[in-house]
Design a protein around this nucleic acid. Structure first.
Lengths: 140, 140
DNA sequence: CCGTATCCGAAATGATACTG
DNA sequence: CAGTATCATTTCGGATACGG
């Protein structure tokens, strides 16, 4: 039986996915990749990383201005999480009033690249998605 | 004053981000890109898309098996959302017992590519992240 | 088999007040 | 300025029961 190009397409994807989530890299019960993906797959992390990408360093309130709609609490929580995962560094100056600076680590900058591509995809396909939504709503 | 290569790096990123979230593409108050990004930036959508990528078509319970830990409810909710946004198509056969098939649209497949890169990044940088977490925990 | 409907507890997030 | 602490609210998600 011939193996078509189309068949190979799915086998290829399956192979890539399986490689990423391979058992050697963690049990199925606690997969580190799932854990890591789950950690950054939220809008505040994504928008915070995008904001941090714009400058070399940023202060807390500068970030709060740039990440629209984020509360002080969620910015704190998000930054701590990013710091904990090695994507962001934080430096506090012992001055009055206090000054705190945040910036992306090289690891953070490498993730930024992927997030930019995702954001770019959203931007490019916006019309198609809005159209799909309207079509879906009309069917109901 | 000389503009260094490093300076240009941040200006470049800022330009790219601003272009993606440009005002012409939606007001700051309701930015479609933010809306769209927010929609797919959750783990169930991401893992469901990855699972769908593995095959041409999949039935509901096949998907439920593949997306580990997902409940029937969340799979339904996630699939409806993906369908609503034009990433997934659904076909129901009027048989008994009923059979329903889901598959990625071309739009969905293009997003899959970006998600694969994100997942791949997670996989590649797993060790660095775990190390960062340990270092962070030790500092406390 | 593939859902929907409902309820409920847990977790995420916002609002507000307070502090070094 | 840059948080922390607390409380209120909303949202998420699991469990269960039922239906086409």
């Amino acid at each position: 039986m011939a193996v078509t190009k189309a068949d190979n397409q799915y086998l290829d994807i399956e192979e890539r996915v399986n490689k990423i989530f391979s058992p050697e890299r963690g049990s199925m019960q606690f997969c580190p990749v799932k854990d890591i993906l789950g950690h950054f797959a939220d809008k505040w992390s994504i928008f915070t990383i995008l904001a941090l990408g714009k400058r070399e360093k940023l202060r807390f309130n500068e970030l709060k201005e740039m990440v629209e709609g984020i509360s002080q609490r969620m910015l704190t929580v998000t930054l701590r999480s990013l710091e904990e995962n090695g994507l962001v560094e934080r430096k506090m100056y012992q001055e009055i009033p206090p000054r705190v600076e945040y910036w992306l680590t090289p690891l953070g900058r490498s993730l930024l690249e992927k997030i930019l591509e995702l954001a770019s995809w959203s931007s490019m396909n916006m019309e198609a998605i809005v159209e799909a939504r309207n079509k879906f709503a009309a069917k109901k």
